[in-house]
Amino acid sequence: MAHTEHAHDHGHEPLVIEDDAGNLEGLHLIEAVQAVLARKGLISAGEIMLEIQAIEAPGRHLGARIVARAWSDPAYKQRLLENGKNGAAELGIKVGEAQLEVVENAPGVHNLVVCTLCSCYPRSILGQPPSWYISKAYRARAVREPARVLEEFGVDLPEGTVIRVHDSNADLRYLVLPERPKGTEGMSEEALAELVTRDSMIGVARLGTEAASSSQTAREPN
């Protein structure tokens, strides 16, 4: 892994990754914390297992349902753009962590989401952020040279496209509403949802322009 660093070395690399020893240390340390908290009656093993299930549940599929509905129902899209949290709630999706702003791509306008300070991400819709999203390189450069970052992700925007970069924070998260791919008229909402990739909802991919989008959908069980 040329771009990563051995855990606990000097850190000027874009992403600190634990090696096997670091992961074992992390496991033992959190188990030690759990044991202390359990002894004090503050937390139980059963609660932890339930919470792990809860945080494993969200994934691409929830965001894809929101996007597919917005493509299919203009009135819904309007409500979603006005208040993302309420829009998600209409589909039974609870955004618990923060407010949600949905930003719409259009011809000539592309949106990109980052969290420069930390790792803020619409977790209740998309699950955990990908490793590159929390990397120092993405956090630093997405706001400095978004077009070049997008190029690295294989996104080739038409000349003159405006790129809007959204810096997330603890109180406000963003979801990109990608452009509906051409040739999808008449498709059902369920079929449309299958087209929507995680990366397109972060803004580092466009739909219907690369073969990559379908392979990503196939790879992710969610």
Binding site: P14, L15, S135, A142, V149, E152, D167
Partner: peptide
């Protein structure tokens, strides 16, 4: 945010 940095590690 805004610092210079190398390629994004697409991991």
């Amino acid at each position: 945010g805004g610092n210079a940095a190398g390629p994004v590690p697409k991991l």
